[in-house]
């Protein structure tokens, strides 16, 4: 994390999410500070992905608001949301590259839509982005011709096309081999340090969390909200909550007498 940058860039304020009558989480409030790598963790089904979808404006919470640089993206009009989306980049779990387009076309899409740059400049930017994710030379490949890790990296290149202020990653290294996962972690660290991009990651890959996170927020299925917040080190070593300890120490939770 770049030092001295502790201003909140995104503020989640009292978010509650439901699916029908099912409460996913309630009263979730936290801040994402400029330039930090924030990791949202929790067991499967605790609402991590729902929280991410709310943060990127794909779903509306049942109540609460999300502020980006002071503007409420949940309850304001389409213009605010549109402006917000031009300032963020998202990498989905499945990479979500457009399968009918080559990597070059995928990365060119936001550039041609939101800028007036000439083709030559756009091509140069595409090559630079591909180079940043170690995919130089793969521009004319279609997503189907790439491996899982390469697709993720191409997804990152597309997400970074407009040099967004905040990058969101959903399950960054899920289903990838350890070497590729480490490569992606390195890429995240490099992007954060070199470009100062604020990064929000949803994951439960413990090794990644400990390596890349400046701060961790932990959601819990039974508590239906945030149960811990702090640096990975703090949560791992000092947390009194058995759920946090069992997560960070990879242990089964202690069974209560009733169980």
């Amino acid at each position: 994390m770049r030092s001295g940058e502790n201003k909140p860039i995104i503020t989640a304020d009292d978010l509650t999410a439901r699916y029908g009558s099912n409460l996913i989480f309630s009263n979730v409030s936290f801040q994402v500070n400029r330039g930090e790598v924030l990791v949202i963790v929790g067991e499967s089904g605790c609402g991590k992905s729902t929280l991410l979808r709310i943060l990127i404006g794909l779903e509306k919470p049942s109540c609460g608001r999300v502020l980006f640089q002071g503007n409420d993206i949940v309850n304001s009009g389409e213009d605010v949301l549109h402006n917000y989306r031009q300032n963020i980049g998202v990498l989905f779990q499945s990479s979500a590259l457009f399968s009918s387009m080559t990597l070059n076309e995928n990365i060119a899409l936001p550039l041609t839509e939101y800028t007036n740059l000439d083709t030559e400049t756009i091509n140069l930017i595409i090559q630079m982005k591909l180079g940043m994710v170690n995919l130089s030379g793969y521009g004319n490949h279609y997503p189907a011709e790439l491996s899982g890790g390469m697709k993720k990296r191409a997804g990152i290149a597309r997400a970074m096309a407009l040099d967004p202020i905040v990058l969101f990653f959903d399950e960054l290294s899920a289903g990838l081999d350890p070497v590729t996962a480490v490569e992606l972690d390195e890429l995240i660290i490099k992007t954060n340090e070199a470009l100062g991009t604020t990064i929000v990651i949803v994951t439960h890959e413990l090794e990644s969390i400990c390596k890349i996170a400046d701060r961790v927020i932990m959601l819990d299925k039974t508590a239906k909200g945030i149960i811990a917040e702090g640096t990975p080190q703090e949560l791992k070593e000092n947390s009194a909550d058995p759920r946090v300890r069992s997560f960070f120490l990879r242990q089964l939770p202690q069974k209560t007498a009733q169980e």
Binding site: R85, Q86, V90, Q93, A96, L97, F98
Partner: peptide
């Protein structure tokens, strides 16, 4: 299939 592969979500988050 684009919906299932999150491609439509990706479009939305890119502001399209």
């Amino acid at each position: 299939t684009m919906v299932v592969n999150e491609e439509v979500d990706a479009l939305k988050t890119m502001g399209f």
